[in-house]
Design a protein around this nucleic acid. Structure first.
Lengths: 296, 296
DNA sequence: CTAATTGATAACCCATAGGCATTAAATAGT
DNA sequence: ACTATTTAATGCCTATGGGTTATCAATTAG
């Protein structure tokens, strides 16, 4: 007494229930017949129910034993399934990847990653959250996100950061502006305009780059408005409230009454980076990062 | 190596996964901490997967461990059920039915089912648990309950759901309120009252319906208090802290200083549904469901 | 910097799963 | 009827490994 039911009992029980023959069952289990006899007997004592009827020449299941056989088979099958699934999770081919992104990163990189993830690992579930640079860094640090897409130069030392996309800048002008693609010669022509920019604390890197572009052209820009939404910035430009400088790829996906002039000769580039926590244990993360960095 | 997974490992694993603390888990299991450490380590070797992250001061589950916890809970619950059924079969009975219910479902449907079950199948044992909608869904999913009585519109796809009772709504007013059965003309008269409702996460369906009743009357209700107990709601109304809208049948069984006005002309109805797991293996479940749905 | 608390290791002990030998009962063959 | 054969159960023994105590190393709190 005081014994505990174990999975061993289940395997032995199934063998006997299928063979209906102790010696054969014992052979199949690679143990001795007396050992098997004792384990089955013990099992019956633990469950306080007779499972087999043995009359010295024939073994058969009692109703209780027959019911138990079905349930034990179910449990063992479920367990096997669980082990297989566990292996998949361990390898990272199943699980969840929580992704954060800046509004301005949706144009190419993130959709591309999602498509390739679904193709290669259909069992991985993804979730998306649009968040600011700062909120993403915090979320990744706190293990609320696995991956973040940010425009930042430096991040806390717990995080890894890798550039994934580089982009030129473009000037955004109202349709009726005097300058055009052909008449535009350089930033100097814009030194008296007032500028609409992304807020400095929303994306300090972007802000610095715009400043440095103007500095290279020999002036300091007047900044009239700041916003965190590309949509807002375009609308302000449309209404003649100023001009803007944005990462070129942002112009896709909007249908507005503005014109874009790409700054091809400017050395500054807008870069988008992925961040993740170095000691994040989510095995899925590795696949995500690989897929992003080893572009094929 | 060559070790086998046993039920013992499962029990130990669940203890650690719940406590997230080896010493406390060991105490709960009445074994020593080193023994527990070794068994968990062994389990990880058998499954070839890390289940916990321990950094000397904090224990947490890996994604694999978290998945395994759910499955192991299911297996252990199912095993408990099997043992119970086995005992009943041995005693010549046909099985057990574990029922969960919302407090507000006891008035008619559940007692009715219990009486008819005992008449038709005197050998079926029943057990009852009062649980929230959410807790019932989880319990049914994990094989802790066979039947649940909930107020929900949608449930996970593993579950079946069927409406069993439909009810009008009633307004609950303090005894001294100016409105009465005869002077009540419509919900519009209540647009300036503050409302006491069941919490949204306790019963989202109920919450939505109340909102829609008020919306139909052309106002958005001020919600002053939320509770999960009908008793509490009645007491709050009694003390002039607001008025409530409840399923009509709930008014039975309480003796309180409030008055009820049934909303006969309102299209919204409170409905109670049964849920069960589609692949539940309890042989008795079918009898219970049939008795409920094929009302005689 | 000390004290306290964590999980992991090491060495030991003994409970028990499983082995071998044997027995008792049931059947088959002559 | 009497072996010969085969069944599951019993008795005894061994050794694997689960669980113990003592201790360590790492981390945190004061």
């Amino acid at each position: 007494m005081g014994y505990q039911l174990e999975l061993r009992h289940f395997n032995y029980f199934i063998a006997v229930a299928e063979e209906l023959h102790y010696r054969k069952a014992a052979e199949r289990l690679f143990i001795s017949q007396p050992g098997l006899s004792r384990q089955i007997k013990q099992m019956e004592e633990i469950l306080e129910a007779q499972l087999f009827i043995r009359n010295k020449k024939k073994v058969s299941l009692t109703p209780a034993g027959s019911y138990l056989k079905g349930e034990v088979e179910f449990i063992l099958n479920h367990l096997e399934l669980t082990k297989k699934q566990l292996k998949l999770i361990k390898e990272g081919s199943s699980g969840a990847l929580r992704i954060g992104f800046l509004g301005s990163a949706m144009q190419k990189v993130v959709p591309n990653l999602l498509v390739r993830l679904r193709d290669r690992f259909p069992n991985i579930e993804t979730s998306l959250d649009e968040l600011s640079n700062h909120a993403q860094v915090n979320a990744v640090l706190k293990d609320k996100l696995d991956l973040g897409f940010v425009r930042l130069a430096r991040v806390p030392k717990e995080l890894a950061i890798k550039p994934v996309f580089e982009d030129s800048f473009s000037v955004v002008l109202p349709k009726n502006h005097v300058l055009s693609q052909s008449s535009f010669k350089g930033m100097k022509q814009l030194k008296d305009e007032s500028f609409i920019l992304f807020s400095q604390d929303y994306s300090p890197l972007y802000f610095d780059k715009v400043m440095s572009i103007c500095e290279d052209a020999g002036f300091t820009p007047k900044v009239s408005h700041r916003s965190v939404h590309a949509q807002t910035i375009f609308t302000l430009v449309e209404n003649n409230l100023g001009i803007a400088i944005i990462p070129t790829s942002l112009q896709n996906g909007f249908d507005l009454n503005v014109k874009f002039i790409e700054l091809k000769k400017i050395k500054q580039r807008a870069q988008l980076s992925v961040i993740w926590k170095k000691d994040n244990r989510n095995p899925v993360l590795e696949h995500g990062v690989n897929l992003l960095l080893n572009q094929s």
